[in-house]
Amino acid sequence: MDTNTLIRQLGAEGEPVRPLARPWARTVAWLAFGAVYVAAVVIMMTPRSDLLLKVSESRYLVEQCAALLTGIAAAGAAFASVIPGMNRRLLLVPLVPLAVWVGSLGQGCLLDWVQFGAGGLSLQPDWLCFPAIALVGAGPAVTIAWMIRRGAPLSPHLTAALGGLAAAGLGNFGLRLFHPQDASLMVLVWQFGSVFILSILAALSGRYVLNWQSVTNRVRARAVVGR
């Protein structure tokens, strides 16, 4: 097909499209849905009995805020990453709350070690974390996957990793509302580790979820049918 023919066919297909909302607006929309979903799962799983006590502890609050902000910033960065011409430095924003999150967990480990010695850093298996974070993050994950597919697949792996981090960050935030596990090392290994693994898995699936081939094949197929 020569280029002029293609232009005519694309022109004939140029039905109105609604421009995507700005990344921050899409983040708010995603968060609104995610908050409802996470709240529903937390209520279903029964919130932890000491929740009111925990929200007055600064360490718990810092870790929870950092997890939540990591999720929100990662979602914003994922939405920005599918807009051509967007400043790529925006994609680094999630690193700030992520550093605070890891830093506060690391500091917690250090304090436990100083206070209780080697016994303060005991590590027991906590296999609930991975499936629980995946369950709490499932709704936000599906939503963000659907939303980023409306954008341009400029960097599939990075976008998917950010989407995975957003969903898993929100999932971890929800998990700690019903799962009474606060030992810093346990949280760092089992919970943050699960978030990390889920983000890597999301990154690996990036090219399957987002790729130019499938995006342009749909247009190409319509163009051929319309000939």
Binding site: P19, A152, W212, T216
Partner: peptide, 30 residues
């Protein structure tokens, strides 16, 4: 042609408040 098809497929990502050429060239380079 690939760039034109891509532009068409993701034309909703263009924000009319932002400059057009950086948007187009980002698609082209990608």
């Amino acid at each position: 042609q690939d760039v034109l098809l891509s532009l068409h497929a993701v034309r909703a990502t263009y924000d009319p408040e932002r400059p057009f050429m950086p948007w187009l060239f980002a698609i082209m380079k990608n």
